[in-house]
Computed example of a mutant assay.
Amino acid sequence: MPSPLLRRLVSAALLALLSHTMIGAPASAGTGHREARPADEAFLGIRLLEIPANRMDDPRSHAFIVDHVNPGTTFTRRFEVYSTSAKPQHVRLYAGAADIRGARFTFAPGRTPNELSSWITLNRPAADLPAHGSAPVKATIAVPAWATKAERYAVIWAEVSSAGPDPRGNVALVNRVGIRVYLDVGPGGEPPSDFRIGGIVPQRTGDGQPKVVATVANTGRRAIDVEGQLTLSAGPSSLSAGPFPTDRDTTLAPGEQGEVTVLLGKVLPDGPWKFRLALRGGRIGHTATGTLTFPAKPGSWGPPASLDSPLTLALSLAGLVALVAAVILLIGLRRLRARQRIPAAGHLRGDLV
């Protein structure tokens, strides 16, 4: 039988693994974070119930608490915890520390606090959910007047667990879901957000699946979650494909650089392809276009994509504008000539149509 120390170590390792799985990637708008599960399996969920009017156009604000406030400000956000389980659930509620490292939104184990989590107060420490039930919760964030200028990160957690280790040495299982908090504090208006798309490299995974890796740099002064989609066109035999979604776990702190990846269908030929990569980080969006060719060998990298330069794009746009203007001018001339050929009233010929 395993020793008590071994059981505690296994339990702690399992808790850390489960917690990491639960909040790895941004959720879709209007939902909280939860582990991917079969459709018929019960899960615990969390979602925001209100969005600030001045952030309705920010996709992140539909899933996360994202704000900029002056020192000394207090504000609230309402959210909902829900369960699809056929059994009642006792859910513990608390705020914990988080950070951004290595282009990923990371969080501390258990109830580890940080400065931002210490400013968050929930109106209830727990909620007892009936079968398939839900409960509203209100979070109050009180920023002290002495708070220094900086962006801070935290997570508001909802957590359920089994009763605990049984006499046979089984470990307790913990399941928690969370809402990220991105809070920038400082006088004046909100700092700008922006990013830049760098090099784009086609690859094939070890099992031969095409993959595109794009380097992205956060050139703004707030953290961003980067996601988007890739579309292919003008491929072999004039094939088109996509759009293919990017991965959704790239979070960049100000000044940080990271990678955004796109997995594509295995049956795609090598190319060459024209591509359009459209990325968005909150309210900000940028697009890169060009030509790429996937390597033939699994587990290898292809040559970097040939990107369309801003000059090329500008010339293409100017050419399109000139073409539209020429078409409009041609239509106008034809109409003018047609009017000039119509005789005055009272002198119409019988064969005029």
Rank of each mutant, 00 (worst) to 15 (best):
Phe75Trp: 15
Val155Glu: 08
Ile23His: 14
Asp225Asn: 09
Tyr94Leu: 11
Pro310Ser: 12
Ile224Val: 15
Thr76Val: 00
Leu230Trp: 01
Pro125Met: 08
Thr261Pro: 01
Thr293His: 09
Ser306Lys: 12
Pro167Thr: 09
Pro26Leu: 04
Val137Pro: 06
Arg124His: 05
Thr312Asp: 09
Ala345Ile: 13
Gly96Pro: 08
Arg221Thr: 07
Pro144Ala: 03
Leu6Gln: 14
Ala163Leu: 11
Gly228Phe: 05
Pro191Thr: 05
Gly102Arg: 00
Leu14Thr: 03
Ser240Ile: 13
Phe64Ile: 03
Pro202Lys: 01
Ile23Ser: 10
Lys138Val: 15
Asp166Val: 04
Ala241Arg: 07
Gly228His: 03
Pro4Gln: 08
Leu122Lys: 03
Trp157Tyr: 15
Pro304Ala: 02
Arg8Cys: 04
Thr73Ser: 13
Lys149Ile: 02
Asp128Ile: 11
Val177Met: 09
Pro202Leu: 02
Ser3Cys: 05
Thr231Ala: 01
Arg104Tyr: 00
Leu44His: 01
Asp166Ser: 13
Gly282Pro: 00
Ala223Glu: 04
Ser3Asp: 11
Arg248Val: 02
Ser316Cys: 01
Met1Trp: 10
Leu329Ala: 09
Ser238Asn: 13
Asn170Ala: 11
Leu173Val: 08
Ala288Met: 02
Gly346Lys: 11
Asp247Trp: 00
Ala16Gln: 12
Thr148Met: 03
His62Glu: 13
Leu336Gly: 06
Ile65Tyr: 05
Glu259Trp: 11
Thr112Asp: 04
Thr293Ser: 03
Ser162Lys: 04
Asp194Pro: 00
Asp40Gln: 11
Ala325Ile: 14
Ala172Asp: 03
Glu227Gln: 11
Arg221Pro: 01
Pro343Leu: 10
Gly178His: 03
Pro109Leu: 07
